[in-house]
Computed example of a mutant assay.
Amino acid sequence: MYNILLVGSGQLGSRYLQGLSRFNTDLEIFVVDPNLNALSIAKDRFEKMPKNTFSHEVNYFQNINELGNEFDLGIIATNADVRKKILISLLSQRNIKNFILEKVVFQTIEDFEVIIELLNKGKIKAWINCPRRTMPFFLKLKEEIPDQSIIRMFVKGSNWGLASNTIHMLDLLSFLSDQVHFKFDISNLDKKIYNSKRNSFIEIGGKINFFSNRGDKLELVDEKGKNKPFEIIIEFEKRKIHINQDLGFVKILSKEGLELGASKFVLPMQSEITKQIVKDILVHSDSNLTPFSESFILHQSMIEAFNSHLTKIKGKKVNICPIT
Rank of each mutant, 00 (worst) to 15 (best):
M1D: 11
I4C: 02
S9L: 05
S14A: 08
Y16C: 00
L17D: 00
R22H: 11
N24I: 10
T25D: 14
T25P: 10
E28S: 13
E28V: 12
F30V: 09
V31H: 01
V32I: 07
D33P: 04
N35T: 13
L39N: 10
S40H: 10
H56S: 05
F61K: 00
Q62T: 14
E66Q: 10
N69G: 13
T78R: 04
V82A: 03
R83C: 04
I86V: 10
I88S: 08
I88V: 13
I96C: 06
I96E: 05
F99P: 07
T108E: 12
V114F: 11
I116C: 14
I116S: 15
E117G: 07
L119K: 07
N120F: 06
K125G: 06
I128E: 01
I128R: 00
R133Q: 03
M135P: 07
P136Q: 11
F137K: 05
E144L: 15
P146E: 07
P146F: 07
I151V: 13
I151A: 06
S158L: 01
S158F: 03
N159Q: 08
N159P: 08
L162T: 01
H168N: 00
L173D: 02
F175V: 07
S177W: 02
Q179D: 13
Q179I: 02
Q179K: 10
S187V: 01
D190W: 05
K192S: 11
I193M: 06
Y194A: 07
Y194Q: 10
I202T: 09
E203P: 03
G206Y: 02
F210V: 02
S212P: 02
G215Y: 04
E219F: 09
I232Q: 07
I233C: 15
I234Y: 08
R239Q: 13
K240Q: 14
H242A: 14
N244M: 05
F249M: 08
L253P: 06
K255P: 08
V266L: 15
M269Q: 15
I273P: 05
I273Q: 00
T274K: 03
Q276Y: 07
I277E: 01
V278F: 07
K279R: 10
I281H: 04
S287P: 01
N288V: 05
I297V: 15
L310S: 03
I313W: 08
I313A: 08
G315Q: 08
G315F: 08
